[in-house]
Design a binder for these strands. Structure first.
Lengths: 378, 378
DNA sequence: CCAGTGCCGGAGAGCGCTCTCGCGAATTCG
DNA sequence: CGAATTCGCGAGAGCGCTCTCCGGCACTGG
């Protein structure tokens, strides 16, 4: 969502040089510090067992710490592992254990008619989510496999991968409320956790932020700052979070005496923020506060306000939602409702790991409390 | 690099609710549209073969399109595959083919003393690179596995994964010039491609942008706009790209009559841009143009200039490097040298795939030509 | 002193797939 | 028209690992 239309690759960027260096990689040469077993390929359990003078099973036990193995034998085996440079073949292991030690991170957005994609990887949101997952997964030696789910083909590829044991579960980040991915996952009985409450209620674990509370925070802050005529710029109302943010804001304002909140709809993009604010200004010239359902639209709103000759925050105060790095760097710096994205992503990973470990486990959801990050714009 | 220090999770963000829904996932139930074979678990080649009345080998041939199989038998097999809902087990396949259909995307940044990490996933750069790779990899049914490489342990994990056939190759995105990861990969003779020229010359394929040309573009633009006293804010000079951008800029300015370019060093962060600009202003009050080696520092420079009472672009023109979405949204919008990141990432994927297919292949590099994206700041 | 009870290590059976090999049938050439 | 080929399919051997069984040994209790 954080991108500029101009970010499409310009035709002018041409490849200029494709040179070659002299050396080829030393394929097949024994690697320093990791000597291969004699014979072809990487050392196997068998090789280690032979070197250690024990059986495959014993080596396996040492490697996996499954059962008690005599201390001295353990020592011998470990040394044999070190000298052979053994490293377990995960394919072989997962063939028998039916565990892969990998989860799929599904970035799900529907491909619209015409538009190539709804997914914008330049949005810092994406990186923060992935980073949070990565750090939570790492201690468990579980790796994330990234997959796009834009088309039906993509989605069935995700399902296949999961079903045939290419990965143990899925962490889904949807960009749309009507995303079919969560439903498909539930239907297939596959372990999965989604970011943000799914569009329709389904028995699927999710992690979310208390959107209504966040909106309330924004409303109260605007009121405290003396705003009397505030408006809202909402996201697409088929997205549950957009819905919650709007209604939460309206309710909070009503409690503070402003029963009617002028509202314009956007689609979470900068341009839609500009358009919404312009429309709002047309109908309600005396606005002194605006709450936008995300930072990008808030930034667009500020732009529209400044174009219209209003000063932010002096004339109109603006609050966004997401606390993205964009808002922090823009001038005036954006006041915004902060969701702890990294923590939320980490929690997703945690829930998924639990679900994988115990598939019978009940579906759970964790809601995080947002905070208000006050900067210059409100 | 695009983040605000305040983005660290605030302690206030507490978990508020961890509810449970009633239903548990229908584990083990036959899935609509994907009926399981009788017996336990997913259908195997064997099952399909039995249903189709042929041998495992034939089914395998049909699945992989290996050798000619009689058309009618193919039809029967395909139907059997459809009715059983067969989907190949990748672990089993990769056990024998020694191919995994996965590559590791290594996000490599060294963990400094004290600082937890140099890697900032909120930087749109990260998402753009990953997105570009994803789209290039997808047609080949190759999935990216994301791994962090901050510590030595991380790096050896990457190496192990590669060596034991958990993935076929690595795409490395380094954030530092002295990153040991590329060297380790070369030493181990593993297929890999890195983003940006490695710190020291090693026989490893890489993709880069013509940094010197980009800097020249910036220099020429400033000169054309009438700037006579320009300065540069460089990145850490142990990073090759920072080095190239600076020297390219200096050379181009020299060609246009400004032999000496006042320079201040930064570390690619917003704050360092502020600091560098402030220092520059101290020493050289008559500056009318600044080239920063990335957008974040350019944004910081603008901030410092405005604080010092200079107008951008009227008094001082500022050009960044990266054409990040941040620059497009900031006011004044940032003029910046654009590197076609998505294309570059896609090219990395292409080179890696080629290298995997033909390991004897020579090391290659592709240099992309940058373009100047002119906005308000210069 | 002998049976009973652990406990530790080895043997071996697969996990699901690919791929070589070989055989029978169809095809082609002399 | 017979022989040489080619072609299509099936049989079967693993790929490297885990895990269940089982046997042997030491230790304990009666």
């Amino acid at each position: 969502m954080a991108d500029d239309p101009a970010d499409a690759p310009p035709a002018a960027a041409a490849r200029v040089h494709a040179g070659t260096l002299e050396a080829t990689p030393p394929t097949g040469l024994p690697v320093a510090g990791a000597p291969r077993a004699s014979g072809s390929g990487a050392p196997t359990l068998e090789d280690v067992a032979r070197v250690a003078g024990v059986s495959r099973a014993t080596v396996s036990r040492v490697v996996n710490g499954q059962r008690r193995v005599a201390a001295e034998i353990q020592a011998v085996v470990r040394e044999a592992i070190a000298t052979t440079g053994y490293v377990p073949n995960l394919a072989a292991r997962s063939l028998v254990t039916r565990r892969t030690g990998a989860v799929i991170v599904v970035v799900s957005g529907a491909e619209e008619q015409g538009k190539p994609s709804t997914i914008d990887f330049a949005d810092p949101f994406f990186g923060r989510v992935v980073g949070g997952m990565l750090r939570a997964l790492r201690p468990h030696a579980v790796d994330p496999i990234l997959m796009l789910a834009e088309t039906d083909a993509d989605r069935s590829r995700v399902l296949s991968s999961l079903r045939n044991g290419n990965a143990d579960g899925a962490l889904v980040v949807s960009t749309r409320g009507d995303d079919p991915m969560p439903g498909l996952l539930v239907e297939a009985g596959l372990p999965a956790v989604v970011f943000a409450r799914p569009g329709r209620p389904i028995p699927l674990s999710f992690v979310d932020v208390a959107n209504r509370d966040g909106a309330r925070l924004a409303a109260e802050h605007l009121v405290t700052r003396g705003c009397r005529h505030v408006a809202a710029i909402s996201g697409p109302l088929d997205v549950p979070s957009a819905q919650d943010r709007l209604s939460g804001f309206q309710d909070a304002m009503a409690r503070h005496g402003q029963a009617f909140v002028p509202t314009a709809g956007g689609n979470f993009t900068y341009e839609s923020g500009v358009a919404a604010m312009t429309a709002l200004l047309d109908g309600y010239g005396d606005l002194d506060g605006v709450f936008a359902s995300n930072d990008l639209m808030a930034l667009g709103a500020i732009q529209a306000l400044q174009t219209a000759g209003r000063r932010v925050p002096e004339d109109v105060r603006v609050i966004g939602f997401d606390d993205s790095s964009l808002g922090a760097l823009s001038r005036p710096a954006l006041t915004s409702v902060r969701q702890p994205i990294e923590e939320m992503a980490a929690e997703m990973a945690r829930i998924l790991l639990d679900t994988i470990a115990d598939p019978g486990r009940r579906v759970t959801s964790t809601i995080f409390e947002p905070t208000l990050r006050i900067r210059a714009s409100a």
